[in-house]
Computed example of a mutant assay.
Amino acid sequence: MNDPVLALSGVTKTYNKGLPGAVEVLRGAELSIAPGEVVALVAPSGAGKSTLLHIAGLLDTPDEGAVRICGRDMTGMSDRKRTAARREDIGFIYQFHHLLPEFTALENVVLPQLANGVNRGEAVTRAADLLARVGVGGRADHRPAALSGGEQQRVAFCRALANEPALLLADEPTGNLDPGTADHVFETLMELVRATGMAALIATHNMELAARMDRVLRMDNGVLTEG
């Protein structure tokens, strides 16, 4: 049996620990996501879903508990190794695309590959293929300011997938789009995830979108529950 792509066990996180007004954000979070599985994370604003995603994506560390990526225990790993794991194994998509405004759509998808040691020719070929698959191949030479919101977010998806990550983490990836565009962008995202077999954890307030994923996790008062 394959190892889970992402596994959290007993993860806790408290901000301002030991001080007045300490906030217990995660209380023994348990989570396992298999290859090819798409899991929705539903939680009210301020419930800690972004903290969970940051810990899962190795951008933050838990106070207690373990984080395993592709079977490797990341607990206590050096910053250098955590950075390498983020670059090689994890793709991030946020509500706001955070594309580099001075570069074209194609260049925004090429740059992460160059940082990962891919030669430029291969990086350009892969970037062009990804952009074509999400329907913005004809906009490859446009900078973000010349793209619609939906086009920008599709470019952001391509950037997140550029290095073929095992794990995709998305924080409200369609929350800044109108319903029609959000639905189209979500379908594009699901097609890409299914085609690659990666695991995905997608935080969303949209219950209709959540219901179209394989499982729904809810976070309430720092505790994860299924259903």
Rank of each mutant, 00 (worst) to 15 (best):
M213R: 01
N16S: 13
M1V: 15
E226W: 10
H142F: 07
E24T: 12
I93Y: 00
V185D: 05
A128F: 10
G71I: 00
H98K: 05
F92C: 01
D63L: 06
P62A: 10
G197K: 10
S50H: 13
M198I: 14
I69R: 07
D178A: 09
A182F: 04
N206I: 05
R72M: 12
L130A: 08
Q153V: 05
V110K: 03
G121P: 02
Y94M: 12
D60A: 10
F186I: 13
M198A: 15
L8C: 06
A128T: 15
S32R: 14
L53E: 02
A22Q: 08
L147F: 14
L224N: 07
E151H: 09
P179A: 10
N108W: 06
G21E: 05
L58I: 14
L131D: 00
N16I: 04
M190R: 15
E208Y: 08
I69L: 14
G121C: 03
A7C: 09
A145V: 13
E107Q: 13
G48Q: 04
G138P: 04
A29V: 05
T196L: 11
E30K: 01
A203F: 07
R139N: 00
C70N: 08
F186H: 14
V109W: 05
N108C: 10
T14Q: 02
A56R: 08
M213L: 11
V11L: 05
G21Q: 05
L224A: 05
Q95I: 04
G65M: 09
D79S: 01
T125S: 15
V11F: 05
T125R: 15
L52T: 02
M1H: 11
G138S: 03
E24I: 10
N176A: 11
R68F: 09
M207T: 12
Y94Q: 12
R87N: 07
E64S: 14
G76K: 01
E24G: 11
G222D: 06
S78G: 00
L169H: 03
N116E: 03
S32G: 13
T14W: 00
I93V: 15
K13A: 09
L177Q: 02
I69T: 14
E226V: 13
A200F: 04
M207K: 11
H97E: 07
A85F: 12
Y15A: 03
D79K: 02
G117E: 04
N108G: 06
G71M: 04
L100R: 11
G48C: 07
A85C: 14
T12D: 15
G137N: 06
F96P: 08
L114N: 06
G138D: 09
A211Y: 13
S50K: 07
K13H: 12
L201K: 02
Q152T: 07
M77V: 12
A105V: 11
A127K: 01
G57I: 09
G149F: 13
V67I: 14
R154D: 00
L224W: 14
V11R: 01
I202S: 00
G28H: 02
N206P: 11
D3W: 03
T125V: 15
E164V: 12
V124S: 03
T104W: 01
H98E: 05
S45L: 11
V216M: 07
